[in-house]
C-alpha cells in the first residue's frame, strides 16, 4: 500500500520535472532567438500603433472602389489556377496511389518508389516550388499552376494511398473470387468505396490551394497576389486593402461551399 503511494508520487514528481524542463528550454530558445534576430520584446507593446496604421490606411475608400473590376478578374484567375491544379493533380494522384498502395501494387518496389517520390514532392515548400519553377517558366500562370500541381500531387498521392490501403484486401479478394479482372475490381469495388473520401480530400486541397495561390501569385507575378504587390508598392493602400478583403471573402466562401458539398456527399 505504502509503496503504491510512493510509486504514484515518484510518477508525478518525474512528470513535473519534465514539464519544468520543457518550459525552461522553450524560454531559453526564445531569448536566444530574440538576441540572434535583434528582436525587441518591448516593441510588442507598440503593436496597437501598427494596427491603428493598418486600419487608417487599408480601409478601402471611395477611390479604391474603382479597382473592383480588375480585382475580381484577377481573383477569378487565381481561383481557376487553384482548381485546375488540384483536379489535374488529383487524377494523376489517383493513378499513382492505386499502383503504389501496398494492397494493390504490382510489385512492392513500385510502391516504395511512389512513396519516396510523393514524399519528396510534398516536403518541398510551395514557395520553393514557385522559385524553382520561375527559372524555367518565367512569370506566368503556368508557373503558379505547376507549383501548386506538384505540391498537391505529393500530398494527394499519399492521402489517396492511405485511403486505398484502409479499404483492405478482403473486398478485393471477394471480387477476384468472382473471376473479376484487376481493372474491374478497381472500377466496381475500390472506386465506389473510396469515392466520398477522395472527394473530401480534393475539396480540402482546393481550399488550401486557393489560399496558397495568392501567395504563389506574389512570387510568380500573376493573379491576385501580383496586383496586391502592385498596389502596395505604389502606395495605393486602399486598393490593396480591397484585395485582402476579396481574398478573405473568396477563401471563406470556398470553405462554405466545400462544407456544403461534403455534407451532401455523406
Amino acid at each position: 500500500m505504502n509503496s503504491d503511494v510512493q510509486q504514484i508520487n515518484r510518477f508525478f514528481s518525474k512528470k513535473r520535472f519534465r514539464l519544468t524542463l520543457i518550459i525552461v528550454i522553450l524560454g531559453m530558445a526564445y531569448v536566444g532567438a530574440s538576441i540572434g534576430l535583434g528582436f525587441q520584446t518591448h516593441s510588442l507593446l507598440n503593436v496597437q500603433d501598427g494596427i491603428a496604421w493598418l486600419i487608417q490606411n487599408f480601409i478601402p475608400n471611395e477611390a479604391s472602389k474603382g479597382y473592383w473590376n480588375e480585382i475580381l478578374q484577377q481573383l477569378f484567375r487565381t481561383f481557376l489556377v487553384a482548381v485546375a491544379a488540384t483536379t489535374c493533380a488529383a487524377i494523376v494522384s489517383l493513378f499513382l496511389a492505386i499502383v503504389g498502395a501496398k494492397t494493390l501494387t504490382p510489385a512492392i518496389t513500385v510502391s516504395w518508389v511512389i512513396r519516396a517520390f510523393s514524399s519528396l514532392l510534398r516536403n518541398i515548400p510551395i514557395v520553393a516550388w514557385a522559385m524553382i519553377l520561375l527559372f524555367s517558366f518565367k512569370q506566368n500562370d503556368l508557373t503558379g499552376f505547376l507549383a501548386l500541381f506538384f505540391m498537391t500531387l505529393g500530398f494527394l498521392t499519399r492521402a489517396f494511398m492511405e485511403t486505398i490501403e484502409d479499404f483492405g484486401t478482403e473486398k478485393v479478394q471477394a471480387l477476384q473470387a468472382t473471376g473479376a479482372t484487376y481493372l474491374q475490381v478497381i472500377a466496381q469495388g475500390l472506386l465506389p468505396e473510396i469515392a466520398v473520401a477522395l472527394m473530401s480530400w480534393i475539396l480540402y486541397m482546393i481550399e488550401n490551394n486557393v489560399r496558397d495561390a495568392t501567395l504563389v501569385g506574389l512570387l510568380t507575378g500573376t493573379g491576385i497576389g501580383f496586383i496586391f504587390n502592385l498596389y502596395f508598392k505604389s502606395l495605393r493602400y486602399g486598393a490593396a486593402g480591397l484585395v485582402v478583403l476579396s481574398v478573405i471573402i473568396l477563401v471563406v466562401s470556398v470553405e462554405l461551399i466545400s462544407n456544403l458539398i461534403g455534407r451532401l456527399l455523406s
Binding site: 471480387l175 468472382t178 473471376g179 473479376a180 472500377a187 466496381q188 469495388g189
Partner: peptide, 12 residues
C-alpha cells in the same frame, strides 16, 4: 458483381 467474370473487361 457475380457475373463480372463472364463479361469483357470494359463491359465489367
Amino acid at each position: 458483381h457475380g457475373c463480372l467474370g463472364t463479361k469483357s473487361n470494359l463491359a465489367g
